[in-house]
Write a protein that binds this DNA or RNA. Structure first.
Length: 711
DNA sequence: CTAGGGTTAG
């Protein structure tokens, strides 16, 4: 796309294609890295010379603008990237030629408003129009005739500026225009277009723009930036670019407002290289970008999770002596979060405070989210204390983000305090996500009683239950063996419109695996059947001893393929647990094998020369036991064949701090004990170690040659 | 929202 744009620039201002030189930007590490993987698309010399404006007069043609531009964009502008890349980048190495501007360093001038003595009457009239409800356009039009003063230029402009809904602004504009009292100037279009933009009426905006062209009304930078940002908000990026190109072709230079608007368009299209190319060209011709432009760049790098890019933005601002404002800091903080740099986010936040800026709701939301995801409980709590002490602004989103942070870190009391604050507030009443966060906290903390109470409260308050809240409750009630409550919650949730997803099914499946009585298991099974009939059929199939392995394999493939990727391993884990619960150990081994075969357990086995290890951190209790047994069988065979073994063997369960792996280390230790396997707890939590010597002698006793040779 | 550009959750 930048090729398109670069071309548009060149067509009008740079016919010789000789303006640019290699800029320091392309020597920056992050970009060099980028250019290694994908050549920068910055060359423009290979494009054919487009038709000149004389050949394609765009102001007088009758068909639509896009039709007019079509031949140009289809034939000349949309070259294959490979063609461009195949050309040497010679255009960039030409320091002697002067650089051509790609943007005007002066902003669009605005006309001054003069005092209107009728302001009071006209404001009142506009308010009346604003508060009127009408179903027919004619009703509104008849109201317009009550205008207290004649709709001359200044009066009309004042009213136009005071109207809110786009329908009213648009109708008023056309009404004034039809009176023919004065020629409609650019500002009338601009004001109306802005209102239309709030209503995301791109089509109407484009119609107005074409009307301007037809009537010979000048389109200025304000017009173009409004059109472009409206197209952007409507996700019509092609349109945004089309109008930007058109602007150049009519001989109008964008100023920095229009230019940063288009930078944002390319950024939203994730055209990082193009954005940088445009940025560089503008800077090379004397532009000093402002905070908004840097915010655009920062957001772009944030979305790419590109830490080097974020650093580059900070460096550029420093070298150009542009002080970041709160919005820039917010953007960069968010970006640091996405780039997985909580520590740097914290430093940046401190820098912001030292610069004397006050964080707003968005700043705090970004930071709380980062600390929560990083499980930095200390920093999160400290920030929270600071927020309260300094009375920094809070809003609804920040409250919910704080609640989610509490869920991430497991802060029950703090969450309860927050939740109560929300209930007592006027502005920030808890919504279904606030409730879900609380259910998550109670659920992962095993507080079944509190969770149930909250669920009832939610129902009474008429708060919509969502699938995540339902899942949290089901998990919690399942662990607490409150199966009747579980069924009640599930039924009600379905009644209230919850659509079960694979996570919820996985959760039901895991509860089924935990059920001690078949009566309970059947109740859970009945729930699961309503959510995922095929899964239940598969469960019945695998617990049936008579089912052949090949059948299991085929059905497994079908079930797993139909499951969302993130739920596949949990499914397989639960299925293994169910089989072990029903003493179908061999079936459990088959399922583990199938899971491995279909890539659900990458990195389960790890080998170095010195040690072999088994990483069961993402496995359920039953799956981990099965994996251990399988490993021992394999090792026994290796011993029998007298092949080489390393000195050390290691099994890794993780520390169990994560709520889903809680108890794995303990149950694994117990299983080792039952097998009297020679693994010992290491100094590091969640790691079990055995020496080659101990393990071999144990394997020889456990799997005597005679028995296995029979098998 | 008083003619134009940038930032927040699940």
């Amino acid at each position: 796309m930048a090729t398109v744009l670069t071309t548009a620039i060149d067509v009008c201002f740079n016919p010789q294609n000789s303006d640019t030189k290699k800029h320091s930007l392309f020597l920056k590490p992050s970009l060099l890295r980028q250019s290694r993987t994908r050549k920068l698309n910055i060359s423009c010399s290979s494009l054919k010379q487009p038709k000149t404006l004389e050949e394609e007069p765009i102001t007088t043609k009758t068909p639509s603008l896009s039709e007019q531009l079509k031949p140009l964009s289809a034939t000349t502008l949309r070259q294959e990237q490979t063609q461009i890349l195949s050309k040497p980048k010679s255009v960039w190495v030409n320091p002697t030629r002067p650089k051509r501007s790609v943007l005007s360093l002066q902003r669009q001038k605005r006309s001054a408003y003069s005092y209107n003595p009728q302001i009071k009457d006209l404001r009142a009239f506009a308010q009346k129009l604003n508060s009127s409800n009408f179903t027919e356009k004619s009703e509104f039009l008849s109201l317009l005739d009550e205008i207290p003063h004649p709709p001359d230029r200044d009066n009309a402009l004042l009213v136009l500026n005071s109207l809110r809904e786009w329908q009213k602004t648009h109708t008023f504009f056309n009404w004034v225009k039809s009176k023919n009292l004065f020629p409609m100037e650019t500002i009338f279009y601009n004001v109306t277009m802005k209102s239309l933009r709030f209503g995301r009426q791109f089509q109407l905006i484009e119609e107005m723009a074409l009307e301007m062209v037809k009537d010979g009304v000048e389109l200025d930078n304000i017009t173009y930036s409004t059109i472009i940002t409206c197209a952007k908000r409507c996700n019509l990026y092609d349109k945004a670019i089309e109008w930007f190109e058109r602007m150049y072709k009519t001989g109008l230079m964008p100023d920095e407002v229009t230019y940063s608007a288009i930078l944002d368009v390319y950024s939203k299209l994730r055209k990082v290289e193009e954005v940088l190319s445009l940025y560089e060209r503008a800077v090379a011709t004397g532009w000093k970008p402002d905070a908004i432009a840097f915010s655009v760049l920062g957001k772009m790098f944030g979305e790419a999770g590109d830490y080097d890019g974020i650093r580059y933005v900070l460096q550029e601002m420093k070298s150009m002596d542009v002080k970041p404002n709160v919005v820039v800091y917010n953007t960069l903080l968010e970006a640091m979060g996405r780039a997985g740099k909580p520590g740097l986010a914290r430093s940046l936040f401190n820098e912001m405070l030292e610069a004397g800026l006050t964080p707003n709701e968005k700043t705090l939301t970004a930071l709380v989210k980062i600390y929560g995801k990083a499980r930095w409980a200390k920093d999160a709590l400290q920030l929270w204390e600071e927020m309260k002490a300094k009375k920094w602004p809070m809003d609804f989103i920040l409250y919910n983000t704080l609640l989610n942070m509490c869920a991430d870190i497991g802060l029950e009391e703090e969450a309860e305090r927050l939740f109560n604050d929300m209930k007592e507030s006027v502005q920030c009443k808890p919504d279904n996500f606030s409730y879900t966060a609380m259910l998550n906290i109670y659920g992962s903390g095993g507080k079944a009683e509190k969770a149930m109470k909250l669920f009832e409260e939610m129902l009474e308050a008429g708060v919509q239950v969502n699938v995540m809240g339902c899942t949290c409750l089901v998990q919690c009630l399942g662990k607490a063996k409150r199966i009747d409550d579980l069924v009640y919650v599930f039924d009600l949730s379905i009644q209230r419109g919850v659509k079960p997803d694979d996570r919820l099914c996985g959760c039901l499946l895991s509860v089924m695996a935990l059920c001690e009585s078949s009566e309970d298991a059947e109740k859970v099974m009945a729930c699961l059947e309503r959510a995922n009939q095929k899964l239940v059929t598969f469960v019945n199939l695998i617990v049936d001893e008579k089912t052949e392995f090949e059948t299991v394999k085929e059905e497994f493939k079908l079930v797993i393929n139909a499951t969302q990727v993130e739920a596949r391993r949990p499914f397989c884990n639960c299925l293994i647990d169910i089989c072990r619960g029903k003493k179908r150990h061999e079936r459990a081994h088959e399922l583990l094998y199938l899971g491995t075969l279909f890539g659900l357990y990458p990195g389960l086995h790890n080998k170095t020369i010195k040690e072999w290890s088994l990483d069961v951190r993402s496995l359920s209790v039953g799956a981990a036991e099965t994996a251990l047994e399988e490993w021992m069988r394999t090792l026994a065979n290796i011993v029998k064949r007298q092949e080489d073994l390393p000195e050390l063997f290691l099994a890794q369960t993780g520390t169990g701090t994560h709520r889903f792996s809680q108890g794995l280390a303990n149950s694994f230790a117990l299983h080792l004990q039952q097998l009297s396997a020679p693994f010992r707890q290491s100094d590091r939590a969640g790691i079990f170690v055995a020496t080659k010597e101990d393990l071999v002698s144990w394997l020889e006793s456990k799997f005597p040659p005679l028995v296995t040779s029979q098998a």
